[in-house]
């Protein structure tokens, strides 16, 4: 039987900034299974980043429920939520967001450090991951010495370091050229198959949509279509 990783029920999000209420998500029901490679697409302002933030536990839903691996994350306290993110969710950001003072290896290792993994375990996993993203020879380079594509590959390795249940990637290819994008997507797809980790993208990059095996289109905070290839 295939495990459900994420279940979203009747999700709503209303931002109460000043006087104006913004209804960003207007009732979404979705679920993701183990090993999916899915893209959430839609024009800007459609609510895809908001949805992704709530999936990642960075934002609280105004209504509805998100269950991850059987845990209702809106019931978690904020300190519990941080630990939950640490061990269950990997993040890849548009602007790479690596720690500039640390080397590629240290950036990947960092998250395992927070998890309290042993040095041997950290070393082995870091090396394995950086090799599989094709950076086995750049372990000791700082982010400033790496190209955008290389930095994003380090970020992918970092997202996977904690062996999360799924990875959320918000516009990961927005700053990359076609070659770097192809390369990154190939690597992510490979890791998705090898490690059986669910990848969920928020994107409006056609190259990503092409690669994705499921495309969920959102508009005005609602699911417009959910297409499995």
């Amino acid at each position: 039987m295939i495990m459900k990783v994420i279940e979203i029920e009747n999700l709503e999000k209303i931002y109460n900034e000043s006087e104006i209420k913004v209804h960003a998500i207007r009732g979404i029901d979705l679920s993701f299974e183990e090993g999916e490679f899915a893209a959430i697409v839609g024009p800007s302002g459609s609510g895809k980043t908001t949805l992704l933030n709530m999936l990642g536990g960075l934002d609280n839903p105004s209504k509805g429920k998100i269950t991850i691996g059987g845990v209702d994350i809106s019931s978690l306290k904020s300190s519990e939520l941080i630990n939950f993110r640490l061990s269950n969710i990997g993040f890849v950001f548009q602007a790479y967001n690596l720690i500039p003072v640390l080397t590629a290896k240290e950036n990947v290792e960092f998250i395992m450090h927070l998890q309290g993994k042993s040095k041997t375990e950290r070393d082995a996993r870091t090396k394995e991951l950086l090799e599989s993203v094709g950076l086995g020879d750049r372990l000791d380079s700082r982010p400033s010495k790496l190209s955008g594509g290389q930095q994003q590959r380090v970020a992918v390795a970092r997202a996977l370091a904690s062996k999360p249940k799924f990875v959320l990637a918000d516009e990961p290819t927005a700053n990359l050229d076609t070659e770097a994008t192809e390369n990154l997507l190939d690597i992510m797809e490979k890791l998705n198959r090898e490690e059986n980790i669910t990848f969920i993208f928020a994107t409006h990059d056609a190259r990503v949509m092409k690669k994705a095996r499921r495309v969920i289109t959102i508009e005005d905070g609602k699911v417009l279509s959910d297409e499995i290839k």
Binding site: N83, R85, L86, F91, I111
Partner: peptide, 11 residues
């Protein structure tokens, strides 16, 4: 950067 650190699980 601090937001990122907190997002990925730095308490």
């Amino acid at each position: 950067e601090l937001g990122m650190l907190m997002a990925i699980g730095m308490n």
